[in-house]
Computed example of a mutant assay.
Amino acid sequence: MSESLISTKPSPYQALPFSDRCRRLWLRGDHLLIGVSPGNSYFSARRIAELVTWGREFFDAVDVVHADLHVDAQFEAFGYTPEHAKRRAAKEVRTTARRIERGLAEAGLNRVAMHALSDFLAAPAYQRLHAEVRRALREDPVLREAAEGMARAFLAGRLPTGVAADAGQLAAGLRYICAELPFFLDTPALLGRASSISCYHVELPLTPVLFGRSEGLRAAPTQGYAVVRPVEEPSPEATEPLAA
């Protein structure tokens, strides 16, 4: 991982690009993608407003994408009836979308757009990338292990402490993750950007697989990743912050 923080002073957030290549893409400043998961309290309307405002200091354009696919499958895996699962999922997705809309309205910025994952289902680039992900999950044990680790970490928030996800819950989590992964592989192809940085507030188990190896399924050369988090959160990997 790159050890150089990127920040401005004063600034509410700091960025830690995963690698030197990710850092170079960040410094190009073409595009930042902010992914928002339904039911994640981290992404309040205020935080979204802060993130997009902060992101526009560095990037020509910012997009916010929220997950709305396979959310009902997760509720079903936790014992909800199909009808109840669909209602709960729809409610979570609507709540997330409204929170993003409030955040973007509060930020009041141009060149910041909001999308749902389902908006891309018919796009050839998304279909190609999604097929590559599904194939890699079958054929690439390293990626499969990392994806399952990511799914377990995600599902842990819905399970009692110490209880592991069962096979059905894990499969539902993997379908959800599979739907998101095209934006970690090639956002430029999906949104027509020269290059892009996908960001999240933690490093995900799949990050080293997609951005740190030289074989198997991995991110496009114009796709980067960075952990973006509040400045007050300590960063054990970081050395001296760098002003952008």
Score class of each variant (00 low, 15 high):
residue 126 Y to A: 08
residue 143 L to G: 07
residue 109 L to E: 02
residue 84 H to R: 14
residue 87 R to N: 11
residue 94 R to P: 02
residue 162 G to T: 06
residue 64 V to Y: 09
residue 108 G to W: 01
residue 107 A to S: 02
residue 146 A to D: 10
residue 145 E to H: 11
residue 149 G to K: 04
residue 131 A to M: 00
residue 120 F to C: 11
residue 169 Q to F: 03
residue 98 R to A: 10
residue 159 L to C: 09
residue 164 A to M: 03
residue 128 R to L: 04
residue 129 L to I: 06
residue 99 R to E: 05
residue 98 R to S: 09
residue 73 A to W: 07
residue 85 A to N: 03
residue 74 Q to R: 15
residue 114 M to P: 08
residue 125 A to K: 00
residue 147 A to L: 13
residue 94 R to K: 13
residue 92 E to K: 11
residue 70 H to A: 12
residue 166 D to E: 10
residue 142 V to D: 12
residue 128 R to V: 04
residue 120 F to Y: 15
residue 71 V to N: 13
residue 164 A to V: 04
residue 71 V to L: 15
residue 77 A to L: 08
residue 176 Y to S: 05
residue 124 P to G: 05
residue 64 V to P: 09
residue 86 K to C: 10
residue 95 T to S: 09
residue 79 G to P: 02
residue 154 F to V: 02
residue 144 R to Q: 12
residue 168 G to H: 03
residue 75 F to N: 01
residue 135 R to Y: 03
residue 64 V to M: 03
residue 154 F to R: 13
residue 105 A to T: 09
residue 160 P to S: 02
residue 84 H to Q: 12
residue 101 E to A: 15
residue 119 D to F: 10
residue 107 A to E: 06
residue 164 A to E: 15
residue 69 L to N: 11
residue 163 V to E: 12
residue 95 T to N: 04
residue 149 G to P: 06
residue 145 E to P: 01
residue 132 E to F: 07
residue 66 H to G: 13
residue 134 R to P: 01
residue 84 H to A: 14
residue 103 G to K: 06
residue 77 A to Y: 05
residue 146 A to K: 12
residue 129 L to D: 02
residue 130 H to Q: 12
residue 156 A to K: 12
residue 174 L to R: 06
residue 155 L to R: 05
residue 98 R to C: 06
residue 160 P to E: 06
residue 127 Q to F: 00
residue 121 L to A: 13
residue 77 A to I: 01
residue 99 R to N: 12
